[in-house]
Computed example of a mutant assay.
Amino acid sequence: MWEFPQLAQFVHLSLRALNILEVPLYEMERMLLVPQSSETLAMLMTSLVSSPLVRMKLADLPPMPYHMWTAKLAARVQLWYRAYARERGCTQRLLETQGIEPTFWQVVGTSNPFEKRLFHQLSFYERVWMVKTMCDFLFHSHKSLQDCVMEAATAEPRETVVGRDRHGFEYLHFPQLLVRDVRLYRRGRLSGSRTGSTTPSTPVKPADPPDEDTRMSAADEDSRQWDDEDSRMSDENESRMSVASDEDSRVTNMDGEDSVSHLLEDGEKPAPVKAPPTPPAACHTA
């Protein structure tokens, strides 16, 4: 799958903006095989579904549990499908406005899959495209991510073409992505329906998931911490709004006092404000 090296390269170049640890390519392949138990996927998706402000605090927070980040992802995907309906299925327009490639709608479908299925119930290829499209959307929408990727790309080595076979396929190596092992990716010729595709040379065997009770206990604890963080941020916002309101009221009162006092002589008190006279009742003629 050519999507894997592209996805891995994006994550590698945007590590500073995403505020996460390095994700090796082999781990990126494994995490989508076991999405419910993968801590690496939880770390990555927590960053992708968080706001830039929360993303800055990820070092002090645990990764979101599976049910939380999938719910946030589903909410985002719902907005994509609303845009798809609003644009009447014009995928080129969605590429320009949302950064969503037309292939996403071909792979995942033109109806929201989260209406009937959960993330782990999607096919492996659909999961890959769901995560890849989330990265594409953020890169298209967030200037900070664009700047981070562009800045890192200038200092990083690009892929290396190590050779071609007699059928015209190119074999690529990504030195910046493969630290613990060496892999070659085959890039197809510029003909056919899936141009420019690359396929990994070695399959990855999924690891055994952790014990169910242990996983659920850890997920509950992470949920409580994220609920506390959301509550704290809400309280901070309300406090800032209250302080701003009090300050505006104080300034208004001071302005009102100054506007009266500068017109009076020393020792003179302002005259009481009289109520306006009551208008006479309307007269009726026979």
Rank of each mutant, 00 (worst) to 15 (best):
G188V: 02
E159C: 10
M31D: 05
V162T: 15
S111N: 08
S259W: 09
P63W: 00
E170A: 07
F137P: 05
E170W: 06
S259L: 08
I100L: 07
T199Y: 12
Q176W: 02
A219G: 09
L48R: 02
T97D: 15
E156L: 08
R240M: 12
P270C: 12
Q176R: 06
P113R: 03
H167K: 09
Q98V: 14
A219W: 00
E257M: 15
L145A: 02
M233R: 13
V243F: 15
T103S: 07
D246Q: 10
W69P: 12
L73R: 00
T97A: 14
S197R: 09
C90A: 10
R194V: 15
A153V: 06
T133C: 03
E151D: 15
M1H: 07
D222P: 07
L138H: 11
T70G: 05
D246C: 07
R166H: 12
D222E: 12
L177S: 00
G267T: 05
E156R: 06
G109E: 05
V161P: 01
A286K: 04
R55I: 03
D136M: 13
A275H: 14
N112K: 05
K116T: 06
V34N: 10
D165C: 06
T252S: 15
S223Y: 13
L48C: 00
V204D: 01
F4P: 01
D266F: 12
P5H: 04
G256K: 03
V161H: 03
P35G: 01
M28A: 13
E96Q: 11
W226M: 05
H173Q: 09
R30H: 03
S193Q: 15
D208V: 14
K132N: 13
R189L: 09
L264W: 10
N19Y: 09
M150R: 11
V204E: 02
T46G: 00
H12D: 10
S37E: 10
H167N: 10
T214V: 08
S47N: 03
Y26K: 15
S141K: 14
A244D: 15
T202M: 02
L264A: 03
S144F: 05
C135L: 13
Q92V: 08
V182S: 00
L18F: 02
A244L: 11
L73E: 00
L32W: 01
A153R: 10
E3W: 14
T91R: 04
V128Y: 05
V204S: 03
L73N: 00
Y81W: 06
G267P: 11
P5G: 06
A286T: 01
L7P: 00
D228A: 14
E87R: 11
D147V: 11
P65M: 00
A218C: 06
K116R: 12
L177N: 00
